[in-house]
Structure formats: C-alpha cells, structure tokens
C-alpha cells in the first residue's frame, strides 16, 4: 500500500498545536512509517508554490491549526482544501476561532492604532501601520491583508473533521491518526472527540447546585472534592465537550472551555451564562435590590473573555458591530 500523504499548516496560532503533534513522542515514528509528511512549515522547507503545484486531492489528510486572521490564512485554507482529500480543523483556533478570536471585540483600525501607535513601548513617529503594498527600491513588496474579523476554518472553507482542544491531547491525536490509518473515521463533519460534557470525565462531585458567590481561581483553594462551580469558581466544564481527561481540573484549575461546546449547544457562552444565572445567588434572590444583583453579577470579571474564551467567532455574537 502506498504511504498516506499528510500535511500540517498553521494559520493564526501560537505554535502549541505543532508541539502537541510532537507530544505523541516516539509514536511519531509509527506515523512516518505509514505516512509521508508533504507540507509542514514549522519543520519542512516546502514552499507555498510547491503546494500549488500539487495535483488536486494530492494530500490525503491535512491538519490545519490556527484561526483565519489574514488573507494569507484564507488563501492557504482554500488552497489546502483543494489539495486535500480530508481537511481536519486542528485545535481550538481552527475549530472555533480560539483565543485570537477574542480580537473580534475590536477591528483592524483599533488593533493597528493600539499595536503600532499607542502602546508605550512603540516608537513610530510617522504613525505608519502595515500597508498591503510598498514600493521599495528593489520592487513592489506586498503583505497579506489583516481582516477585521477572525474566523474559524469552517467559516471560510469546507471542513471534514474537527479535532478541538488547546491543544488537542496526544491521546486524541493518536486516536484520530489511528482512525485514519484504519479507515474508521466517522461521518464527515464529526468532531473527533466524545459527545459528552466534561462533567462525565470530571473527578469532582456535585452536591449543592447553588453558587453563593463568584471568585477568581487565585482567590480560592479548591478542596479537591466538590465541583468547582459550587466553590465559586467559574468552570466551563458543564457545557464543554469531554475528551481532554479533565486535565485542568485535575490540576485544580477550572475548565476554560477549549474543547468547545457540546453538540446540542449553539452558543457555549450564552448557555453558560443562562446556566450560571439560574444558580447564582439563588437564596433570597427575589428580595434582592437591583443594585445587589448588579454587585453579584459584577463578581464575574471579564465575562466575554470567560464565557467565550475560545468560541467568540462561532458564537451568536461573532463580533462587535463595526461602525464605519
């Protein structure tokens, strides 16, 4: 049998997904035994023009990590889609927009103003910001366009499978690769992770089902037994997909939702807001004044960054309204 052809690509990402691939350790040798890696910018010197030269569907499986932030990412998404039989959105950013997606509370002009003009460490007397073209003595130089809106991979091209996580665990990657080799992939569009919520994997116990107050993780010493929500820490586990093995919770940190919403949930953040609203400060709630309720809610610092940490671009909100 011919060896399979794999490709890896990184769009707007931190590089953690690349490391995650290497985290399968020596099993990478089993992979290269059965597959050739034909494109992997972080490790191989294959150029874009080489990829363009591939025949359509030349790549068997392309693992695409990172969100779509610039026109370069979008072009590569279309290119790799055309050249791959199977395209896998790899990691939270490709699946949901991820951390870079939080920039959707802003837009290009605001980001450029801040990053290239306003930050105290910036010295930019001409107030220059990145331009699409620049004519240098050597000729015309171009830069990819920086979009106003960060998108997930499936929002710009057709995606076959989703492998969520920040980053996906070595076990999930291994299972996915095994399924590819054995031809046991589920139907197109599936997420290669369990359908259940993290609570199914979580070792902690639910007792009270009430949250009297909200605290930030550093303000609480978890007792290691009770559900973190009951201890006042916002844990996204109740509507986050399982599959990570509750790694964060086992390290006494709340789930932050990197596996994305469970299958039925359309909007991970909104769902968690309504779940928390239903149990936060329930005791005596009907006697509270508007101000007391506001104070209760104000305990949640950075609600958008908490509830939509990984999923803003695919949420109902998607982004802030651009006034232009």
């Amino acid at each position: 049998m011919d060896k399979l052809k794999f490709a890896f690509y990184w769009a707007a990402s931190c590089g953690g997904c690349e490391i995650a691939v290497l985290d399968i350790d020596e099993k990478i040798l089993n992979v290269v035994e059965k597959a050739d890696i034909v494109f992997w910018p972080v490790a191989l010197d294959t150029k874009y023009k080489d990829v363009e030269a591939f025949q359509d569907k030349y790549i068997d499986v392309c693992f695409f990590n990172g969100a779509i932030r610039t026109s370069e990412h979008e072009e590569m998404a279309h290119l790799l889609r055309a050249k791959s039989k199977t395209l896998v959105a790899f990691g939270a950013c490709a699946c949901f927009g991820g951390i870079p997606g939080l920039a959707n509370v802003s837009d290009r002009d605001e980001i450029f103003d801040l990053v290239y003009r306003e930050l105290p460490s910036v010295s930019n007397p001409d107030k220059t910001t990145p331009q699409l073209t620049y004519t240098a003595p050597e000729g015309e130089l171009t830069l990819p366009q920086f979009f106003d809106t960060v998108k997930a991979l499936h929002q710009v091209c057709d995606v076959d499978y989703f492998l969520p996580g920040c980053p996906p665990t070595p076990e999930m990657i291994e299972q996915a690769v095994t399924a590819i080799f054995e031809g046991t992939l589920p139907s197109k569009g599936s997420t290669l992770a369990p359908e259940k919520a993290l609570c199914e994997e979580c070792p902690l116990e639910i007792q009270e089902k009430k949250i009297p107050f909200i605290k930030r993780p550093y303000q609480v010493t978890p007792d290691g037994k009770r559900c973190l929500l009951e201890q006042g820490v916002i844990c996204m586990g109740i509507n986050t997909r399982a599959g990570c093995g509750a790694r964060c919770i086992k390290a006494n940190m709340p789930c932050r939702g990197c596996m994305g919403p469970t299958p039925e949930v359309a909007d991970q953040g909104a769902k968690l807001v309504s779940a928390i609203a239903s149990i936060l400060g329930v005791e005596g709630e009907e006697r509270m004044t508007e101000k007391e309720i506001e104070a209760l809610i104000a305990q949640i610092k950075d609600p958008l960054g908490t509830f939509y940490r990984y999923t803003l671009p695919i949420s109902l909100l998607r982004r802030k309204v651009i006034k232009k």
């Binding site: 259940k196 609570c199 639910i206 089902k209 299958p263 039925e264 779940a275 239903s278 149990i279």
Partner: peptide, 15 residues
C-alpha cells in the same frame, strides 16, 4: 430530557 446528553448536574431540578 434527552438522557444521552444529560450529565445529571441537577440545575434543572434546582430551578
């Protein structure tokens, strides 16, 4: 209730 999806968290019962 879709029992497949239910995680038994009990928020519904509480509310």
């Amino acid at each position: 209730v879709d029992e497949e999806l239910c995680i038994g968290c009990g928020l519904c019962e509480e509310n």
